[in-house]
Design a binder for these strands. Sequence first.
DNA 1: GCCAACGTTGGC
DNA 2: GCCAACGTTGGC
Length: 153
Amino acid sequence: MAYWLFKSEPDCYGIDHLAAEPKQTTRWDGVRNFQARNLLRDKIVRDDTVLFYHSRCKAIGIVGAAVVVSDAYPDPLQFDPQSPYYDAKSTQSKPRWYSIDIKLQRVFNRPILLDTIKQIQALESMALRKQSRLSVQPVTAQEFNTLMQLIDD
DNA sequence: GCCAACGTTGGC
DNA sequence: GCCAACGTTGGC
């Protein structure tokens, strides 16, 4: 049972979009970074917890939690020439990119803002703060527990 | 919307 | 396999 943080731009796909999905479940696709891909393909497993993070917006921070409800499988968008996520170097037998499905668990009453995270000593080694560009990041159990204590609902 | 930081590509 | 050029990310 591990913890992860997934970033998304709410203008593109925010937690409200996830909440509006049938079964509040979506495919996390379009990840096109090798380090993030390796986590999706090799480390993230069913029942892991995902913290949903909003980037590039007014209230930057963690806005809710989701749970992983599938194993990793090849991202279908890499095979679709119409998709912006199409990758000519991918083949069905040798896919380059992977997806998983996540299901919304809860939306926090208010986000845990990046500003707040930056002020907390126990969170200073979060990947958010060093490898800030990685869109799929590991979160330790200690970090997760610290974050959950900040939720007041 | 700017731009620094960082990941990827490709010529050599 | 180095590294300059280029593209993208994401906080501000």
